[in-house]
Simulated scan of single mutants.
Amino acid sequence: MSGLTTRVAEWAATGRWETVNGHRIFVRRTGGNGPLVVLLHGYPSSSYDWRGILPALESTGASILAFDFLGFGLSDKPTDVIYSLKTQADIVETLIAGQPALLIAHDLGDSVATELMARDIDRSLTFILNGVMMTNSSVVIGKANLTAAQKLLRGRWGPLLARLISPKVIRKQLAGVFSAEHPLTKDEGDDQWSLLAHNGGDKIIDKLSYFNRERVELADRWEGAIRNWPGRLSVGWGGQDHISGEPVLNAIISLNPRADVTRWPELGHFPQIEDPTAVGRLAVTFTKTKPPGSSSDS
């Protein structure tokens, strides 16, 4: 596919496109016959972010589903839809197709996870949700420190700013959320831009920012899900995240003191890219932990 780096093109060749509600969604299904683990990526990236932890997860025998949300990565990027996270949650439910599942999420994916948790509370969820693992995000929007660009993109000037998006701008924004110990590499910047720009995604980046409005409008529902969902919540957090750092983590802990918390003090906003070994280790522990009430040999 033209415009993609060689590395991203090789990644694309390992997956396929599945049609969901009339749109092509890039999907990668790997692993064994163990519990289904679903990876929910962040903004403005894609399932490619998870590539470094896949070998560790696959070693557990889990069945792994990674995919690109509508509008992101290698999935379709229509210009005439509202990119609601409720729509993205619908896609998750369709792809899971009623199987019991574990969710591992990052950034935007954390809010999709909270919508699914809220549906579980409402008893409208179409699958058994056995656990959720969250990583860095502005899931509690009132405690996040959004960049000026993030604030502009979700407002009236968003369409104008989207026209000014360039590889240089995206690399600068991404570099600003990586830690000093694990800086953004040139290859990673090239890969991320090629995925964003694929099929004109850079031109709709303001539309893709709609979720930050929803995080305000639906705060009671989504933060209430963190507080009231009775299932197993695991949290892994990079301490060098200047957007969604310690204040957001503390808010999650306040909402759900039962959560299992792992801190990575030296990592930034993309811990799964910066140190896939550390994140993979937590993901394996999370995957292998039996849900409450399950038998030891289930």
Rank of each mutant, 00 (worst) to 15 (best):
L74I: 12
Q173C: 03
A175S: 13
S75V: 15
K172P: 03
W157V: 11
D206F: 02
P78C: 04
D260F: 07
L65H: 08
T19E: 15
P159C: 05
K86W: 14
P291E: 10
G231K: 02
A219H: 09
L40V: 07
A219I: 03
P55N: 09
S111Q: 14
G201I: 01
M134P: 07
N130G: 13
D260W: 06
L161I: 11
D107S: 08
R7P: 00
I170D: 08
I64T: 13
Y210Q: 10
T277C: 02
Q173R: 15
P247W: 04
P167S: 08
A278F: 00
A105I: 05
G224Q: 05
A251I: 14
L54C: 11
G176E: 08
I170V: 15
G22Q: 08
T114E: 15
N145T: 12
Q192Y: 03
V169Y: 04
S2A: 10
I53L: 15
V92M: 05
F69D: 06
V279Y: 04
R263K: 07
T94W: 02
Y83Q: 10
V139E: 06
L103N: 14
D220L: 09
R29P: 14
V139N: 06
D275K: 09
A283C: 09
T19H: 06
P247C: 05
S294Q: 11
G245R: 03
I91K: 11
L95A: 13
G189W: 05
F286Q: 02
